[in-house]
């Protein structure tokens, strides 16, 4: 796995840029990933999505279904794509430090 510096730390990432050690995530890491995802500077709306994803992940160890995200944050899918041009999984989840989704999703 390649290593990169994010938020001042050296972190392992996979070939799509997902960090491999979710416990090392913090806000500075998120902002550095956001720069590569056309989601920088991060507004309050960005953080609303990221914090929701992060908290769900900490409780359930998986990303929530997209529809759960739109319902809980109040942003529709179009808005999510505007905030995160890479989309909810490859954009938002990556910034939130979640692993890349697996299985038939």
């Amino acid at each position: 796995m390649p290593k990169v510096t994010l938020g001042g730390k050296e972190l392992e990432i996979d070939e799509d840029g997902f960090i491999q050690e979710p416990e090392k995530w913090d806000k500075a890491v998120a902002e550095d990933i956001a720069k590569t995802e056309e989601a920088y500077p991060m507004s309050e709306d960005h953080w609303k999505v990221i914090n929701y994803l992060r908290n769900y992940f900490l409780e359930f160890e998986i990303a929530p279904p997209i529809r759960m995200v739109t319902k809980q944050t109040g942003f529709d899918l179009k808005t999510i794509y505007k905030l995160f041009p890479g989309g909810p999984a490859k954009g938002a989840c990556k910034i939130a430090g979640l692993p890349k989704p697996t299985g038939c999703v």
Binding site: I62, P101, T102, G103, C104
Partner: peptide, 10 residues
């Protein structure tokens, strides 16, 4: 429990 990483709790 699942290839998606879904646990029983999730």
């Amino acid at each position: 429990g699942s290839s998606t990483g879904t646990s029983p709790k999730a």
